[in-house]
Design a binder for these strands. Structure first.
Length: 580
RNA sequence: GGCAAUGUAGCUCAGUAGGCAGAGCACAUCCCUUUUAAGGAUGGGGUCCCGGGUUCGAGCCCCGGCAUUGUCACCA
């Protein structure tokens, strides 16, 4: 059973048939010999040169202004839009204007993809335009497009509903060309990061996404199942433990662009699957890593924007080196006035109360400190700032600080009020590591769902000896948000996770047939909200008859209504079906 | 999960004492050989999110749902 088509879709399908009847293939097999793109023509056209006397260009029709014997259309290709002038006599053979009058004027629509062969000129209005000598349909578009129009920087009829845009990213990319730019910047960002790392001879590697034990971060995982092995597997929440095993194996510097998966809340900073770049380098410590991060981010910003500063929301953020470095306790002192460096848990709770921070349900020194930081400090750190030296409780994989007891050598980089990087001097003392993971196990037994799991294979690698190592994780999506001035993570992910669409769809109406509903009534039942036999269970025959009656009138169907017995039969069969 | 806003034509949105459901674009028909967000004219298109209630009468008021968005909470 076909989904009901809108009037506009029906018109386009009829046009498709008519094109075929006229011997025009709406979906030709052969390619189109493109020689130019819209942007290069617009940027470089000049009446004095002969560069653009013979151009082939292809793209989507985005607007049409049709007159008797000549028309203007706008073509959008991957680089932008350009106007095309179509003159009847130029695209038709002598004495037969049907290609212009019928094919072009009646059978082509906004959204169709066409190839244009012609020459470039400038109209009286000054618009750089391609004068078409040939127009070829390359692909017919069967759905109407929301048409976005712009004039003088003002946008009319924009396709802006975030839900529609993310659910139908294809359409979003077609009608909102600036969306492409966001993703071009993202790609360029990743490329320049990769170039930077490769130039230093770091080795790009791949490690498992399906892991028997998940680790390397504190988060709830997605769980799946392997049939042949008859075992549970998890989608990775981080690749840290595997990369460190490679370091122990003698690969001195490894990195991975990793899709990680965390089964947690979603908001404008969190998507269930997200991308992280993790980097581990042997014989280095976290000071070295801070230098490297500074150098890398400056390099990336320069290669994308040609300068080290960038506007994000209301702020201008500068990635010019060096970044500010401050310890966690100093930062809290700076922003709250309290020195909490030597406090125990009950004193910290007092401070939290004084600062009017809600710590209900939060226990443990580490988490309280983190909450105070998150509330009172983090949002104020707009310029890139390294926060150093975290309490040991929060960091089971980081090395104890060389001089500050109770702390570890860890830093986070905060940019625009949000964590961007997390890095340590990696813990390589196997005994210490085992103790810390056992402590995590204990927390887990006390109900901390995010405490880490003890991974024997990882520990055995550390026991073989891992050199002193600096490790880094950097959130690629969040960096992309900053680099593109995006307000939400969904803007920088092509296909962000969405709640399933709840609308009932007529696809399943086949099943109504199986309980004896004649074809003619199925669309009407669907329209009244009855899509599957199950929907019939909680209703009664009279109500259905009423609905059908109303819709029958609306759709002017001459077929007599089914009898009440018929409807009762459907319901009876639906009940049978549901009991199977 | 809390709070708030929103839900009307394919798209963007108007719509108030509660009194025939609207505009622009898109679409269709006709006229026009250089238009500029859209040349001109005419026309088709609606479950006003769903279900109850108040009322002679509900897109609008009340109650209950659903969905979406934003925000907070949760999430190193």
């Amino acid at each position: 059973m076909a989904i009901e088509l809108s009037e506009q879709e029906i018109i386009r399908r009829e046009a498709l048939q008519q094109l075929r009847q006229m011997g025009i293939n709406p979906y030709p097999n052969e390619g189109y010999p493109i020689t130019h793109y819209a942007k290069e023509i617009l940027d470089n056209f000049n009446e004095d040169t002969e560069f653009f006397n013979d151009v082939y260009i292809a793209g989507r029709i985005m607007s049409r202004r049709i007159m008797g014997g000549a028309s203007f259309i706008e073509i959008q290709d991957s680089t932008g839009r350009i106007q095309v002038y179509i003159k009847q006599d130029d695209i038709c053979p002598p004495n037969d204007n049907s290609f212009y009058q019928i094919v072009f004027k009646k059978l082509l629509d906004i959204g169709d993809i066409v190839g244009i062969h012609g020459f470039v000129f400038r109209t009286k209005m000054g618009e750089i335009t391609i004068h078409a000598k040939e127009l070829k349909l390359l692909a017919k578009c069967l759905r109407p497009l929301p048409i976005v129009k712009e004039k003088d920087g003002k946008t009319y009829h924009a396709f802006t509903d975030p839900e529609q845009r993310y659910r139908n990213r294809t359409l979003d990319l077609i009608v909102n060309p600036h969306v492409k730019d966001i993703f071009r910047i993202r790609t360029k960002m990743v490329q320049s990061m990769r170039d930077f790392l490769n130039q230093k001879n770091f080795m790009e590697v791949e490690t498992p996404i399906l892991q028997p034990i998940y680790g390397g971060a504190a988060a709830r995982p997605f769980k799946t199942y392997h049939n042949t092995l008859d075992t549970s597997l998890f989608l990775r929440i981080a690749d840290e433990l595997y990369l460190k095993r490679l370091i122990a194996g003698g690969l001195d510097a490894v990195y991975e662009f990793a899709k990680d998966f965390r089964n947690e809340g979603m908001d404008r900073f969190h998507n269930p699957e997200f991308t992280q770049m993790e980097l581990y380098v042997a014989y280095k410590d976290y000071y070295w890593m801070m230098d490297t991060v500074e150098e890398m981010l400056e390099h990336i910003c320069m290669s994308i924007h040609g300068k080290a500063d960038i506007t994000v929301g209301e702020n201008i953020i500068s990635f010019a080196r060096p970044f500010e470095r401050i310890s966690l306790f100093d930062a809290i002192k700076k922003f709250t006035g309290f020195d909490i460096s030597n406090m125990d848990e009950s004193e910290l709770i007092e401070i939290a109360k004084k600062l009017d921070i809600d710590i209900d349900g939060i226990t443990g020194k580490g988490k309280i400190i983190d909450t105070i930081f998150g509330e009172k400090v983090e949002p104020h750190l707009i310029q890139p700032t390294f926060i150093m030296d975290y309490p040991i409780e929060m960091s089971p994989l980081a090395k104890k600080h060389r001089s500050k007891p109770g702390l570890v050598e860890r830093f986070e980089l905060i940019v625009n009020g949000k964590e961007l990087c997390n890095a340590y001097s990696e813990l390589n003392d196997p005994i210490d590591q085992r103790n810390r993971l056992e402590e995590q196990l204990r927390l887990r037994q006390l109900g901390d769902e995010e405490a880490m799991i003890l991974d024997e294979e990882f520990l055995s690698a550390i026991e073989l000896g891992m050199p002193p190592t600096a490790g880094l994780g950097i959130g690629i999506d969040r960096l992309a948000m900053i680099m593109t001035n995006a307000n939400s993570i969904q803007e920088v992910i092509f296909f962000p996770q969405m709640a399933p669409e709840r609308k009932a769809i007529a696809m399943e109406s086949e099943s109504l047939k199986s309980i004896g509903v004649p074809d003619i009534w199925i669309p009407l039942l669907t329209e009244s909200g009855i899509v599957t036999p199950n929907d019939l269970l909680d209703t009664n025959a009279n109500k259905i008859l009423n609905n059908l009656g109303g819709l029958r009138k609306k759709h002017k169907i001459s077929e007599p209504l089914p009898s009440k017995e018929d409807v009762e039969n459907w319901i009876a069969k639906a009940k049978e079906l549901s009991q199977k």
